[in-house]
C-alpha cells in the first residue's frame, strides 16, 4: 500500500517541475536556445552577405 502511494506521488509530479528539476535538460535548453537564435542565425546572416567586387 505504501509502495503504491509513493508511486502515485512520483506520477503526480507536474511535467514542468520535472523539467525544472533536471539540471542537464536546463543546461541543454540554456545552450541551444541562444546558440540557435543568436549565434547560428547571426552567422547565417553574415555569411550570406555578398562579397564586394
Amino acid at each position: 500500500m505504501n509502495d503504491q502511494s509513493s508511486q502515485d506521488e512520483i506520477v503526480r509530479i507536474p511535467i514542468m517541475q520535472r523539467m525544472l528539476d533536471n539540471p542537464f535538460l536546463l543546461l541543454f535548453i540554456g545552450v541551444v536556445f541562444p546558440a540557435v537564435f543568436y549565434i547560428i542565425w547571426g552567422i547565417m546572416e553574415i555569411v550570406t552577405i555578398p562579397i564586394a567586387n
Binding site: L20, I29, G30, F33, P34, Y38, G42, I46
Partner: peptide, 21 residues
C-alpha cells in the same frame, strides 16, 4: 527558467546598428 532560455539573447542589443544583420 525564462532567464535560462532568453536572457543571453539580449547580447544582440550591442549589434543593433551593425549593417550585416
Amino acid at each position: 527558467f525564462l532567464y535560462i532560455a532568453f536572457l543571453q539573447l539580449a547580447s544582440a542589443h550591442h549589434l543593433l546598428v551593425d549593417p550585416g544583420l
